[in-house]
Amino acid sequence: MTTPPPLLSARGLHVAFPGRHGGAPSRAVDGVELDIRAGEIVALVGESGCGKTTLARALLGLVRPTAGHIGFGGKPLEYTSRFLKAYRRRVQLVLQDPSGSLNPRHTVYDAVAEGLRIHGYAGDERAAVAEALAKAGLRPPERFFLRYPHELSGGQRQRVVIAGALVLEPELIVADEPVASLDASVRGEILALLLRLRTEFGLAALVVTHDLGLAWNIADRVAVMYLGRIVETGPVEQVLTAPRHPYTRALLSVLPETPGEPVVLTGEPPDPSRIPAGCRFHVRCQVLASGEAEQAGVAGACRGQDLEILGGGSGEQVACHWAGAQVTG
């Protein structure tokens, strides 16, 4: 059987911002290939500042790439207002903080109906809002129409934000840290909701998170990002049970259920305007620091030889000289 084409694809994507006072540009996204298929949930994981939110904004058409291109439904993304308006009906954003993304002066009804009004919806607005709220788990929906955000719990506010995305019947949602601001008791409910939306409506999702535990619970596939580039990707069970990149191993090591001592990475991620030569992780790499890379004969490559950009496909891939030596050794 032939694999269906991806719903959303990025090829050779770069996003750079001008440097301060005429300095070197900041390479926030520095060569990314990524595919998301219909009905697939992909988790984009990494530390704060690694470029994952900028990548998500580029995929939404909110930031124009410096190089590379984005395709949706087999067609390239165009940066005309008409094209982007139609595109954003099919691809919706769910923000991290429901309190910040909901206008405190607007009722739940108006918050959910806003997208319909922007896009000139010609159908029954009341019915569409009620259906979106019901899909998001707020039932009976009419009970919530005249409520204001301050009258809702944190979980209910996040469901209203999700309903505002669902009301336009998108094919893909981009959820940026969708449960980061919620209590632990509510997080599971929202994750279960996202899984149900995929199962019942075929909704695809890119979930942006720093939490590998969240990725484990919700994603089909995970892409681990470091300093503007995806360094490991593959099916979530494969990557998270047998991680090959030292950075992925370090992120996993701090989860409570992971056996062994946590890996403490030294220092902060480098400035994206001064990306180091060789492997971009080598200045913090525990494998290089321990001498394991030297024993494998790849320490020089780690410090001076760049790695190829990983492809956007669904197979397991890793950008690491040491991991490559483990396979061939």
Rank of each mutant, 00 (worst) to 15 (best):
Q238M: 03
V254Q: 08
T248K: 14
L227E: 10
F201R: 02
E189T: 15
T258C: 07
L193A: 12
G188M: 06
A325S: 14
G46C: 12
P18K: 03
I173A: 01
L8C: 05
A184T: 15
P140M: 07
V42M: 01
L44E: 00
R126W: 05
L206M: 08
Q295V: 14
G234W: 05
H69M: 08
R244T: 03
T54N: 13
L34K: 13
S48P: 08
A113P: 02
D97L: 00
Y87V: 05
L62F: 14
G155Q: 08
A323F: 02
G297H: 11
G228E: 04
M225A: 08
G100R: 08
S253L: 05
L60P: 00
I190A: 01
G329P: 05
R11D: 08
Y121R: 10
P259Q: 10
D183V: 12
L265Y: 03
R280I: 04
W216A: 15
R143S: 14
A175V: 07
E131P: 00
G19H: 11
W322C: 02
P269I: 12
A301C: 05
P141L: 04
I190E: 00
A58L: 13
V45L: 10
I41K: 00
R157F: 00
E177K: 06
S273D: 07
V231E: 00
E308S: 12
G100C: 02
P259Y: 12
V287P: 04
E200M: 12
I36H: 00
G329T: 06
V298M: 09
L102D: 06
I173G: 02
G123T: 01
Y79V: 04
L166Q: 01
G202K: 02
G73Q: 03
G23T: 15
E33G: 09
G260Q: 07
T199Q: 15
L138M: 04
A165W: 00
A165M: 03
C50Y: 04
G324L: 04
V167R: 06
L152S: 13
M225W: 02
I218T: 13
D110M: 06
L60V: 03
L152K: 15
P243K: 11
A299T: 14
T3N: 08
S290I: 14
E200H: 12
R117N: 14
A111T: 15
P25S: 10
G137Y: 09
A38H: 07
A128M: 12
A325K: 13
G71Q: 15
R37Q: 04
G228Y: 05
G329M: 09
L214F: 03
I118F: 11
G324P: 01
Q286C: 02
L252F: 06
A204L: 11
H106F: 15
A215C: 11
E131R: 15
F83H: 14
